[in-house]
Simulated scan of single mutants.
Amino acid sequence: MRDHEVLAAFERIYRADVGAITRFFARRCTEPQLVADLTADTFVRAMTSFATFDASKGTATSWLYGIARRTFAAHLERSARTRDLVRKAGGRRELDTDELAELEARIDAERPGRALLERLAELPALEREAVELVHLCGLAPKEAADALGVPRGAMRTRLYRAMARLRRVVEDEVEAR
Rank of each mutant, 00 (worst) to 15 (best):
C137D: 10
R114Q: 08
R87A: 09
F50W: 15
E118A: 14
A51L: 13
R106W: 04
R81L: 08
D54I: 05
R78P: 04
T82Y: 09
R111Y: 11
L95Q: 02
A140P: 02
E118P: 05
L120V: 02
D84H: 14
A140S: 13
L126Q: 08
A55F: 01
R45S: 04
F50V: 09
R70S: 10
S62K: 05
G113C: 05
F43W: 11
A130I: 01
S49D: 10
L139M: 07
G58I: 08
G91A: 09
V44R: 15
L123Y: 10
T82M: 07
A130C: 01
A40D: 14
R83L: 10
E122R: 13
I107E: 09
L100P: 04
L126C: 07
D108T: 11
I107S: 03
L85F: 04
K57E: 10
S49C: 07
D84E: 14
A74K: 00
E118M: 15
R78V: 11
A46N: 02
A89K: 13
L136M: 06
A140N: 08
L95H: 02
D37E: 15
T52K: 15
F53A: 12
G91F: 13
G113S: 13
E127M: 14
D54G: 02
E132I: 00
L95R: 01
A74N: 04
D37K: 06
D37Y: 11
A60T: 07
G58S: 10
R114V: 08
T97H: 01
D41Y: 07
T97P: 03
L123H: 02
V44Y: 05
A115R: 14
R78Y: 09
H75T: 05
A140M: 08
R93S: 01
R114Y: 05
E127Y: 11
I107C: 00
L116N: 00
E127V: 06
T71M: 07
A130Q: 04
L139A: 00
F53E: 05
C137V: 12
P112Y: 03
T71V: 13
L103P: 00
R81I: 04
E110C: 09
G113K: 11
E77Q: 15
D41V: 06
R119W: 10
R70F: 15
E129H: 11
I67C: 02
A80N: 06
P141Q: 06
R81M: 09
R69N: 09
R128N: 01
A101S: 14
E102D: 12
E102Q: 11
P112R: 06
A109G: 07
H75K: 12
A101Y: 02
R119V: 11
A105I: 05
V134R: 00
L64C: 12
A55H: 11
E110L: 04
S56I: 03
T97D: 11
A60K: 03
C137I: 07
L139C: 12
S79R: 14
R83Q: 07
E122T: 07
G113T: 09
R128E: 03
V44F: 05
R78G: 06
T71A: 11
A46F: 03
D84F: 12
A130V: 03
L76Q: 08
R87Q: 10
A60H: 14
I67N: 06
A74I: 03
E118S: 12
V44I: 13
G90Y: 10
T71N: 00
A125F: 06
A51Q: 13
G66E: 13
A121C: 09
I107V: 15
V134G: 01
R106N: 04
I67Q: 02
R70P: 01
